[in-house]
Nucleic acid binder design. Structure first.
Lengths: 336, 336
DNA sequence: GCAAGAACCTAATGCGCTTTAGCGACTAAA
DNA sequence: TTTAGTCGCTAAAGCGCATTAGGTTCTTGC
């Protein structure tokens, strides 16, 4: 800025005013300063800016997953891609970290907060009884919880969520209409808020229809557990006629396992995957799936966070209910 | 720090010396200061630190991919997970950005450099005729190219790479021994350095053995193109007896397509996937694959970058050659 | 014609840290 | 006794920016 000031023949403060759109300089000077800055390829030092009161121009994103569980899941990269789109417009950086568990995640938030490294954070995989919203609220670090249910206990925290309950209800509707009465839901990690929501809804829907042979089994989302649970339930005397998988990976593994056991999909057993991705169209039969726009989900979350960072109020935003895409893996129940 | 100084009854400079292990304070004072700092939960402001000459304590990572191509690919998350492991030890942050293409990527590097936002960057998907190493070398931004071939033109840039050529040679060896003489390599994006290396090596290996019906076809890595190319080559009068796919996603799509066309794997056509992942064990038959340790790859790259940032010399490091994991998708050629 | 105010600009301060220069007290060598 | 040197510490400057408190000149209203 000193250089710019010299070249433009004004003081450093004038440069600051000119470049930040503050009043106090004439339009002529402003334009001249702008041109010099442009020509010199000047960009403000984020560190200096931050030191004089501005934010860090950065938001944080922590992924708490054991390293080997990362991988095939397409949801996160899509989400991040949507987040980036919004952040990039406003020249905000994304500080990314992978940790082992929620405890480490909280430690990262504390560190970021103490070091003034981020202006806000995006929280994923909310849990029932989650320590994170409380911590962030207490630290006063703006945060958006992605995928959580609305939570009034932490007024400083925004929430962006999809209506899993509604989606689950529509899946059950669909399967019930096709004559399915014995349904197993191969769920994700227990303790995750959306897992619990789906499990609860399934139970409620079953109850409402008087179905007794409907249940949820939790897993770690891996293809291995998906396959194992599939094998276990299909080997029963009265195996289920429909399987709902909480992600695409387990669904694909489940279909392979079913085929191995001599079950034909969808003639003997119908399959629905919770996440739609290329994977669902890479196996035969093509998987019916619940589809949501993960990129848009990310965009929405990022927009909420920037609003919050700018001093806006915390809000709860619902994104559209995931839709069932019917493909080849669902059909009428054999015994219907 | 002012608070700490007051509590410990020393000057602020003494606190700085004590906390940074600099000489100039007695052991007693140092210990006392440490305790007070600990008790007050003090963490240095990265911004202030950076402003007084230290680095940004952050490294950058840009992924240049159209949003819809992101996704099923497990390589990147694994890589990032390895990178994080090393960075976390040293309390370095990872600034992450997704962009559309290499031009945008260069713009990001320029911005980060001008804003002093990062101490170094990790570059992935190197290309033949890549503008990035030149730019980074010119800017003087420490960088590690991941997956590139050694390049002497840019002495400031480190390289971490796997020997694709050796791996390709071993795959051809394997297939040749099984009697395969007509081989199609469904390659990745043209212009990527490792794509070109693999294509060149395949051609050389074929030449060495006098095979004329061996070729590479480039794609965009998507399941769609993988399937399309598979269909095209299998519908020929003399279809190949072996297919080498440059990633797991295309391999899986290819197997599905082959099955559709009435080709049995591996009886009619053998399949090898370049990347090993859960995906390869989620389809039947299980896919033979080239396996490498992507997490370790990430660790190595991060270690090189930290060494470079610390003022070490640029180096070229080779990670182990990917190994062929033989599963069920490769067998003797039918006409052998 | 003069005071009041607006318009445009500069000087100076501070953000939280590192670092250099310097200072007093003590010790060892001459 | 003096000189030089060391140890443990403090005072002060500076990193690049935003901001606040002036300070001129120019206009405006009476």
């Amino acid at each position: 800025m000193k250089d710019i000031a010299r070249h433009a023949g004004v003081s450093q403060s004038a440069v600051s005013f000119a470049l930040n759109g503050r009043p106090g300089v004439s339009e002529g000077t402003r334009e001249r300063v702008r041109r010099v800055a442009e020509q010199l390829g000047w960009r403000p030092s984020t560190a200096a800016r931050q030191l004089s009161g501005e934010g860090a121009a950065t938001v944080g994103f922590v992924l708490a997953r054991p390293a080997d569980t990362l991988g095939v899941d397409s949801f996160f990269l899509q989400l991040v891609s949507g987040i980036q789109e919004v952040l990039a417009e406003r020249h905000l950086g994304l500080l990314f970290q992978v940790v082992e568990d929620v405890t480490d995640e909280c430690a990262v938030y504390r560190r970021w907060w103490a070091e003034h490294r981020v202006d806000g954070v995006l929280v994923v995989d909310p849990r029932t009884d989650d320590p994170r919203p409380g911590l962030l609220d207490e630290l006063g670090l703006p945060a958006v919880v992605i995928g959580g249910a609305p939570d009034e206990r932490h007024p400083g925290i925004s929430t962006v969520w999809a209506d899993d309950a509604g989606a689950m209800a529509s899946v059950v509707d669909e399967l019930y209409a096709l004559g399915h009465r014995r349904i197993v839901h191969i769920a994700g990690l227990p303790g995750l808020a959306h897992t619990e929501r789906r499990v609860r809804t399934l139970r409620a829907e079953a109850g409402r229809r008087g179905l007794t042979e409907v249940e949820s089994v939790t897993t770690d989302y891996s293809d291995a557990e998906g396959a194992a649970v599939t094998r276990r339930v299909l080997e029963r005397p009265a195996p289920p006629t429909a399987l709902i998988y909480d992600n695409d990976v387990m669904a694909v593994a489940g279909v392979a396992t079913a085929a191995e056991l001599g079950f034909s999909v969808p003639a003997d057993v119908s399959v629905v995957a919770w996440e739609d991705s290329a994977l669902c169209r890479m196996v035969k039969p093509w998987l019916s799936a619940l589809s949501r726009d993960s990129v848009e989900f990310g965009r929405t979350a990022a927009r909420e966070l920037t609003a919050l960072v700018d001093g806006g109020p915390a809000r709860t935003v619902r994104v559209p209910v995931p839709r069932v895409i019917v493909r080849d893996s669902t059909g009428a129940a054999r015994d219907a």
